[in-house]
Each structure stands twice: as structure tokens, then as C-alpha cells.
Amino acid sequence: MADVISSKEVQKIAQLARLELTGKEVAQYAEQISAILGYVSQLSEVDTENVKLTSQVTGLSNVLREDVVEVCSNPEALIRMAPEHENNLIKVKAVFDS
């Protein structure tokens, strides 16, 4: 069976997902994702004319709370979860090219 999606499309999706893939992975995912999409295509057999899509299963609506500020008990610990931090700030590469 021909692949539903090509290596080129896989590369485009990887770029959208900010995911670096090796050449081998690109070829592998083109094949595997095509197989899965082939399996999933059986959904077209189901008549869904006039069927609403599921957006939730709880039946809850308008879940609101009072707009009250809560004090974070340990903000330093949140910063420490980041892989690089300095002076209680998360360190990242420059966002804009210099």
C-alpha cells in the first residue's frame, strides 16, 4: 500500500511540532502514520449526519470560581523545576536575533 503521507509531509509536520527527526525516523513515521491513518479511515463508514461532536463528557457547564488571588506557597520551587535558572529567573536563549 502506498503511504498516505509522504516523507516531505512528515518533515513539514515535524517542523510544526518543533521536533527534530533523523532521516530514518522520517521514513519510519511516513510508513507507520500512513498505516494508522489507513486504519482510522474506517470512521468514514459511520453516518454522522446531524451528530454533534463530543466536546465534554461530564455535563458540567460554566465552572467558575471567585476571582481571588491565591498566594503561591513556594515560587522558588517552581523556578527550580526549570533546567536552567539564574537569580530566581528562568534562563532561555535570546528570542530575537542580535
Binding site: I5, E9, V10, I13, A14, L16, A17, R18, L19, E20, L21, T22, E25, Y29, Q32, I33, I36, L37
Partner: peptide, 22 residues
């Protein structure tokens, strides 16, 4: 972003990210 994710997600996580993004 791309290298952290590419180097550290395993094959199934990558497969699902790719399929989901598609």
C-alpha cells in the same frame, strides 16, 4: 525546542505528536 524534543522523546511519544499534529 527541536533538539530537546527530538533527542528526548521516545518513539511512541514522537509518533503520537506527529499523528496528532497531522
Amino acid at each position: 525546542y527541536t533538539k530537546t524534543r527530538g533527542e528526548n522523546f521516545g518513539p511512541e511519544a514522537k509518533r503520537r505528536i506527529m499523528l496528532g499534529t497531522y
